[in-house]
Nucleic acid binder design. Structure first.
Ligand SMILES: NC(=O)c1ccc[n+]([C@@H]2O[C@H](COP(=O)([O-])OP(=O)(O)OC[C@H]3O[C@@H](n4cnc5c(N)ncnc54)[C@H](O)[C@@H]3O)[C@@H](O)[C@H]2O)c1
Ligand SMILES: NC(=O)c1ccc[n+]([C@@H]2O[C@H](COP(=O)([O-])OP(=O)(O)OC[C@H]3O[C@@H](n4cnc5c(N)ncnc54)[C@H](O)[C@@H]3O)[C@@H](O)[C@H]2O)c1
Lengths: 209, 209
DNA sequence: CAAAAATCGTGAGTGATTTCACAAAGTCAG
DNA sequence: CTGACTTTGTGAAATCACTCACGATTTTTG
């Protein structure tokens, strides 16, 4: 929290990606890896990888590369892979159901532990092992998860957000097109799938490679 | 393509977002809007918005703001909203099905026109009006869509990608955790949902607000 | 109509991120 | 053990993105 505060955000966003690939290498039995190899696998410039790693000190050895096992144990510590972050999902529709079935469980430190929906028909059962509760019981049943995934219709997004924030949630992954308002102590990541698709189309037409 | 090449990528990524909010304002019957109002709605600094707009020339009027209708027609042209980009979706599983039901149709210039899967049971029917074909008939049935959405298991990603590229696809929206390799003439946007969730958790622990 | 208020467009400054390029330090084959 | 080769870690430069702050212009109010 003191030294690490200095890690650039762009670097922090790449850490889970590195972790996943290093884990793959480990499972494949590889003993060492160079920034060049890693670069080809994750499609990030090798200098950027070395720079990213260097924020954590000298993890590699010159002329050799990085020891996979050491790197893995290092990232596991750094990303708190031992400590699971519990997550609530709000809105068990098309997207929400897909996420529940998947549940982000592969090599992962996050777990959806409860889901909520407004439709009575969906409530009571479970999907992918996650119980589905009625949204009226949000405050009561959410325990103290710190992260929520929002997959409700956009009109409902702000109202639900306010309730989540009041209950102490500190991070929201928002899949609705609505831009939600939160206190400055809460972090929101927007994933706007329509925008992604549109901007890809825009890039294709206007930034020919 | 000449002048526009100079538009920063960060700006280009925000254009679809602006477009959607301006369209909302138009539907609400608003006649004018300031960068400050827009800023609150889309959560982007107002100076950034003015700068973004300024790459396209002087769209506003001092002391007044921007005329909603003019802005809308301008963005419609710029984002080619009149011309629909046809999209193919590969992998009709949990995520793929959600996307087909949604089909990105709201205020949008993109449309999924065909989907493919390897399981015979899924083939033949349609979801959200999109016919589902067998992956063996990919080359034959995909027509000449220019964009593909990849929602297959990660092991299948590279193989499918190679076939898509060979068929002339120029943009891929990749939801699999695999980092795919493509010729430099093809643009890939990765949306890695596990990474998004993990990095949100990391930020919460290491970058307290 | 005049003064006050609003708001754009942008030059210049700041900050963040990426990339280059190379010395230093190690590996490895013979 | 030596020389050729590899690869890291990092200063410095380059690039990219964001924000401040203000003159210019228009609207609005009384
Ligand atoms: N499905 C997609 O491919 C896709 C793509 C881009 C964006 N989105 C966005 O993601 C969100 C969810 O999309 P979806 O396709 O899953 O929609 P959906 O309609 O299938 O699911 C929404 C679910 O939320 C529930 N709900 C409604 N109001 C609620 C409330 N107040 N509290 C709790 N639950 C409530 C509904 O009962 C429903 O089950 C939407 O905002 C949509 O715009 C979806
Ligand atoms: N569902 C999620 O929430 C989620 C989250 C993060 C990442 N992902 C990734 O998205 C991808 C899809 O996830 P999902 O949950 O929809 O998986 P899924 O298993 O439900 O769906 C995959 C579909 O692809 C089809 N398929 C398999 N091989 C194929 C091939 N060669 N050609 C065509 N179709 C083929 C399968 O028949 C299946 O219908 C996976 O790579 C997954 O890692 C999913």
């Amino acid at each position: 929290m003191d030294e690490e505060t200095k890690i650039p955000q762009a670097t922090a966003k790449r850490l889970p990606l590195y972790y996943r690939f290093i884990n793959n290498l480990y499972l494949q039995g590889k003993k060492r890896v160079s920034s060049k190899e890693l670069s080809e696998a994750v499609k990030v410039d090798s200098a950027t990888i070395r720079r990213d790693f260097s924020y954590f000190g000298a993890l590699g050895k010159k002329g050799y590369g990085y020891n996979v096992e050491y790197l893995l144990s290092f990232f596991r510590k750094t990303l708190d892979q031992d400590e699971t972050t519990e997550v609530a999902l709000i809105g068990v529709g098309n997207l929400g159901t897909a996420f529940l079935n998947y549940n982000f469980m592969k090599n992962n430190n996050t777990k959806i532990v409860v889901a909520f929906d407004a439709q009575k028909e969906r409530v009571g059962g479970e999907i992918g092992g996650v119980p589905i509760e009625h949204i009226d019981n949000l405050e009561e049943k959410m325990g103290n998860v710190s992260v929520a995934i929002l997959t409700v219709p956009s009109q409902a997004a702000q109202g639900i957000t306010d309730r989540l924030v009041a209950k102490g949630v500190s991070g929201i992954l928002n899949f609705t097109p609505a831009r939600i308002t939160v206190p400055s102590t809460v972090r929101v990541h927007h994933i706007d799938l329509s925008v992604e698709l549109q901007s890809l189309a825009y890039f294709l037409k206007h930034y020919p490679l």
